[in-house]
């Protein structure tokens, strides 16, 4: 029963977002991908399929991040601002069902965006003679996980602060989450234990987005150990679930005014 309602809410959230034409961005990226691929075949010697793959995966990641950041921040804000949330939760719809439905609807949008760009990237790469291997698919899966995690970070923050601030802070958390691994290896930091201490704390508390970034492995054909993959995957899923339950917990207690 509640599952039905979650699906109904996610369906209409999806519809509303689709009709707001955000996926035009996906299509534009797709077209850009084809143009870049064409240019690459004309001008690069040796590895045009790598260019297509590199560009495609980069754009896939960037557009997912963009959708999570901007759509995620306004997901609740718009509902409360236009008082549609009042219409919905004045029906037999508990708050956790509402918020789960909203988030799921947006996750479907992310999936669609990733799906379209995956097909286009792989097609371009394949036509140019590139191979489609497990690492590529793995990287895309992790990309999806990254954007879901980011989406949950934004939604979580938007429960306390306004949506612009939530976007900015989430973006910062994302960038730091990617940079932290390299930062720890800088000599300057290694020589200063107190900075290391702060970084360790950060490392422990905030999401380590770098764990979900497999693009370099794909591009440079490095091999991935199963342990690493499983560990990172579990990390992403657990962190996401933790945020998700926090969101439900806080949203249940939030004053909607």
């Amino acid at each position: 029963m509640m599952l039905d309602k979650i699906l109904i809410i996610s369906k209409y959230t999806f519809k509303e977002l689709i009709k707001s034409r955000i996926l035009y961005v996906t299509l534009i990226i797709g077209i850009a991908l084809m143009v870049v691929t064409y240019v690459a075949t004309e001008f690069t010697y040796g590895v045009p399929e790598k260019v297509a793959l590199d560009f495609g995966l980069g754009m896939l990641s960037l557009s997912s991040v963009g959708i999570s950041l901007f759509m995620g921040a306004s997901l609740l804000f718009k509902e409360i601002d236009s008082r549609t949330v009042y219409m919905v939760i004045s029906r037999p719809v508990p708050r956790w069902v509402f918020i789960t439905g909203k988030i799921t609807g947006l996750i479907f949008i992310l999936l669609l965006n990733i799906g379209i760009l995956t097909v286009m990237t792989l097609t371009c790469s394949y036509l140019l003679g590139g191979e489609i291997n497990q690492a590529i698919l793995m990287s895309i899966l992790f990309n999806f996980l990254e954007s879901v995690l980011l989406l949950l970070v934004v939604v979580f923050l938007s429960l306390f602060i306004n949506n612009t601030l939530a976007t900015i802070i989430s973006l910062t958390v994302l960038l730091l989450g990617h940079a932290i691994k390299d930062t720890k290896n800088i000599l300057f930091v290694q020589q200063r234990p107190y900075i290391q201490y702060v970084l360790d704390l950060y490392h422990f508390v905030l999401p380590n987005f770098y764990k979900l970034n497999l693009k370099d492995y794909v591009i440079y054909n490095q091999t991935l150990s199963l342990d690493f993959l499983l560990g990172s995957f579990a990390y992403g899923v657990c962190y996401s679930l933790f945020l998700f339950f926090m969101i439900i917990f806080l949203f249940n207690r939030k004053n909607l005014d």
């Binding site: 209409y12 519809k15 509303e16 009709k19 707001s20 236009s82 008082r83 549609t84 219409m87």
Partner: peptide, 9 residues
């Protein structure tokens, strides 16, 4: 009061 619904539906 002053309801405003999903604009694209």
């Amino acid at each position: 009061e002053r309801p405003y619904f999903y604009p694209n539906l």
